[in-house]
């Protein structure tokens, strides 16, 4: 898929995110907007997957796990736009009897979701398990996961980081959304983590820096490089330097839009900044 086409999808995904969150006056737009390019690049270019015939086991397919489940708007939009389920279902987000729960779950049978997430720190372990199952099944497809940078404060992450290199889980690409923000402020203010890249390197991972985590071309190059490094005894960490709230000017550069919804006026402003390319749901 061409760069222009991917960019058009990103624009539509951003519209979906702000419309979903606005409609129920709740949800997490900031991190969702910041990860739009990465997830579009994964699902529309890099992953080998079959949206129309969703099977939990994903044999012969690449699998993605969202660990920071609060950015559910972006994964729901990307899954729907990729064809996992009808885009009309996006309007049920966070409503009663919906399959699109506030945080993703397998409980409601939503195609494309393979694990519940929301309570932070668990997705990397699950991804390691799925990567191990792939090895046991002699299935040479890859496992992807996305973590938030604030999420790295959870201890389980480091149990998993240690395990993945010690046990040579080399069919796994774990991306970290480094937006340097969390609910109470900047990650440096809340609990400074120092150099995340140095930490992963110290744990013997291959580390790839994506300094423009909202640039499709840079993401594309990084994913191509990451895939090329798999199979060599080491897991790969992709550090995506993103802007929380990217694509909506008044949401950028602040942690304040982590978990609040735009009002009517703000919605119109956000939509005016992101062209309707594929048709709103």
């Amino acid at each position: 898929m061409s760069h222009d086409n991917l960019q058009a999808i990103v624009s539509q995904v951003r519209r979906d995110i702000v419309r979903m969150v606005h409609a129920v006056k709740s949800g997490h737009p900031g991190g969702s907007l910041g990860c739009a390019e990465y997830l579009v690049s994964l699902y529309f270019k890099h992953m080998n997957h079959q949206p129309k015939n969703f099977e939990m086991d994903g044999i012969g397919q690449d699998i993605f796990f969202l660990s920071n489940g609060h950015i559910s708007p972006v994964i729901y939009s990307v899954l729907a736009r990729a064809g996992y389920f009808d885009i009309s279902e996006l309007k049920t987000f966070r409503k009663l009897n919906s399959r699109l729960q506030g945080h993703p779950t397998t409980h409601e049978g939503l195609e494309g979701i393979r694990i519940a997430s929301g309570s932070l720190g668990q997705g990397l372990s699950v991804a390691i398990g799925a990567a191990t199952a792939k090895k046991l099944n002699k299935d040479c497809c890859f496992i992807y996961t996305l973590l938030g940078d604030g999420e790295l404060q959870e201890g389980q992450i480091w149990e998993a980081v240690m395990y993945a290199s010690a046990k040579k889980v080399d069919n796994l690409i774990a991306a970290v959304d480094v937006n340097e923000k969390q609910i109470d402020g900047s990650t440096d203010d809340v609990l400074a983590m120092g150099s995340i890249g140095a930490k992963f390197k110290a744990f013997d991972w291959v580390v790839i820096h994506v300094t423009q985590g909202n640039d499709l071309q840079e993401i594309d190059a990084a994913l191509t490089e990451a895939k090329g490094k798999l199979g060599n005894g080491k897991p790969v960490c992709l550090l995506l330097q993103t802007d929380m709230g990217n694509g909506v000017d008044f949401m950028m550069g602040t942690h304040k839009w982590h978990g609040i919804a735009p009002n009517d006026e703000q919605l119109l402003s956000a939509l005016s900044q992101n062209e309707e390319t594929l048709g709103d749901y």
Partner: peptide
């Protein structure tokens, strides 16, 4: 080949077990 020593890291063990089911394993 089907035994995984995870070390003193029970939380990670539970997560890995959950992931192994995705692919048909019975952990």
């Amino acid at each position: 080949d089907r035994f995984f020593q995870v070390g003193i890291a029970e939380a990670n063990m539970i997560g890995i077990a959950a992931g192994l089911t995705i692919g048909g394993k019975i952990p």
